[in-house]
């Protein structure tokens, strides 16, 4: 399917806990990314979950790894 982007999934289990990176989904847009994330990572009763397009994450001190691609100008993931 064309136009799929990677979305990073963040969640916290309950109030007072840090937001953790728990995984990622591929989706053709924000709305489906929300649905896919909620259905894929349903192992906990999350207090809060959000998704971020991979291309929106700006690495600060490293330029390797999936997020570093954005800094190296290779970002094509959303």
């Amino acid at each position: 399917m064309t136009g799929e982007g990677v979305y990073e999934v963040f969640a916290r289990k309950k109030r007072g806990e840090p937001l953790r990176h728990i995984g990622y989904v591929d989706a053709p847009g924000d709305e489906l990314a929300r649905v896919y994330a909620w259905k894929t990572y349903d192992e906990e009763k999350w207090f809060e979950m959000c998704v971020v397009p991979r291309g929106a994450v700006i690495p600060v001190n490293r330029d390797d790894g999936p997020w570093g691609r954005n800094r190296r100008g290779e970002g094509d993931d959303g």
């Binding site: 399917m1 990677v6 995984g23 990622y24 989904v25 591929d26 259905k39 894929t40 990572y41 349903d42 999936p66």
Partner: peptide, 23 residues
């Protein structure tokens, strides 16, 4: 069954980051 599909998706997604096409 839904869990298994999610598990598959997670492993294929890790492969994508290594340049292997899930598709």
């Amino acid at each position: 069954i839904q869990d298994e599909l999610a598990h598959a998706n997670i492993a294929y997604r890790l492969l994508e980051d290594m340049g292997v096409s899930k598709e």
